[in-house]
Simulated assay, not measured.
Amino acid sequence: MTLLDHLSEGPASAPPLLLGPSLGTSYALWDAVAPELSAGHRVIRWDLPGHGGSAADLVAPGATVGDLAGLVLELADALGVERFAYAGVSLGGAVGLHLAVHSPERVSSLAVVCSSAHFNGAKPWRERAAQVRAEGLARLADGADERWFTPGFTVPRLVRDHREADPAAYAACCDALAAFDLRGRLGDITAPTLLIAGREDPATPPAHLREIADAVPGATLTEIPGASHLAPAERPEAVLTALRAHLGGDARRGMAVRREVLGDAHVDRAQAGQSPFTARFQDFISRYAWGEIWTDPTLSRRERSMITLTALVAHGHYDELAMHVRAARRNGLTPDEIGAVLLQTAVYCGVPAANSAFAAAQRVLAEEDGTAG
Rank of each mutant, 00 (worst) to 15 (best):
L3K: 11
E9W: 06
G10Q: 11
S13P: 04
P16N: 04
P21H: 04
S22K: 02
Y27W: 15
D31L: 07
G40Y: 12
P61A: 04
G62M: 10
V72R: 02
V81N: 10
R83C: 00
A85L: 05
L91C: 08
H98K: 08
H98L: 07
H98M: 05
R106E: 06
L110I: 07
C114Y: 01
C114F: 00
A117R: 07
R126L: 15
E127H: 08
E127N: 10
A130I: 04
A134R: 12
D145I: 01
R147S: 06
P156C: 05
V159N: 08
A169R: 10
G198V: 08
E200V: 06
D201P: 11
A203K: 02
P206H: 06
A207W: 14
A219Y: 04
T220C: 14
L221H: 13
I224R: 06
A233M: 03
G248L: 01
M255S: 12
V257R: 11
G273N: 15
Q274Y: 03
G291S: 11
E292H: 13
T298M: 14
R302L: 01
Y318H: 11
D319P: 04
E320T: 01
A322V: 00
A328K: 01
A328M: 08
R329K: 08
E337P: 10
S356L: 09
G373K: 02
